[in-house]
Design a protein around this nucleic acid. Structure first.
Lengths: 138, 138
DNA sequence: TAATCATATTGTAATGATTACAACTCTGTA
DNA sequence: TACAGAGTTGTAATCATTACAATATGATTA
């Protein structure tokens, strides 16, 4: 699975004339280091320990920026929790209905193109699975 | 694509000892007749014309019931709009980013099983595409 | 260095979807 | 008719997200 380095991200932001402020840096680090596809609340709560002045609005703003810049993606596996993912192509997401953990799995999104959609312009593909993970099956 | 008849649905509800009240009947009809994958608000607004006493809570309650009974599915293509779909297997959803319309397309969900997940118990698979539909491309 | 300007951050208030809950209604049965 | 259980309704509460105005920051130029 292709990984995105911090340097890549920094470069991308430069290209788009987006300043890498301290807060944005920390949020980017959080997204790349923790592979947990966090919710806004998780990001805010964890980072707030290091940055007591951090505002939740800043987290929202930064995530919106990253999504618009195509550096992050919104995951809507559940209707009541929006999660964020550093943008790595060609993978799907599995959510365990027991422990709530989210697993990445590789999938060739190109291979699930569809004849019916040959006249459609496809910009984004999402694949979400739900079930029970091996750990919880025991 | 497999279609679900009204009689099938009624039978399913009987099996589960769920009463088919007037409101529930209307909501079921709405879901089967209109193929628009409606939001709660669409269902409520449209049915409210016929049933002025209808409450939005009833719509929520009924949809929850249908989902729990596995007769309907929740669609979370966007993080800000929850939609509902009568449960038909083996199809994905395409949402046009221009007009907002949602298109079904057939897809063999079994074929996108994944070796990495061979020890996972998979209960549900969702495939969401986004882009521009042919009508809006012109 | 000081002044200026654009951008980023913050905190609070507003919005909107969903849920909780208590009162009321309906239907069937004894 | 009285009762019980289930379904519906409307209001209030909750929670995530957005809007917005005030403040802070940081770079640039004189």
């Amino acid at each position: 699975m292709k990984t995105v380095s911090f340097e890549d991200l920094q470069k991308e932001l430069k290209n788009r004339n987006i300043n890498l402020s301290y807060q944005r840096l920390k949020i980017l680090q959080y997204l790349t280091n923790s592979q947990i596809h966090p919710t806004v609340d998780q990001i805010f709560t964890d980072l707030h320990k290091d940055i007591p002045t951090l505002s939740k609005t800043t987290v929202y703003n930064t995530l919106k920026l990253l999504v618009q810049s195509d550096l992050a993606k919104v995951l809507t596996i559940e209707d009541n929790e929006t999660r964020y993912d550093i943008n790595i192509e060609n993978h799907g997401h599995f959510k365990c209905e027991s422990c709530g953990e989210i697993y990445d799995f590789t999938i060739d999104l190109d291979s699930i193109a569809n004849k019916e959609l040959k006249n459609f312009k496809i910009n984004d593909k999402k694949v979400y699975f739900k079930g029970i993970c091996p750990r919880c099956l025991n």
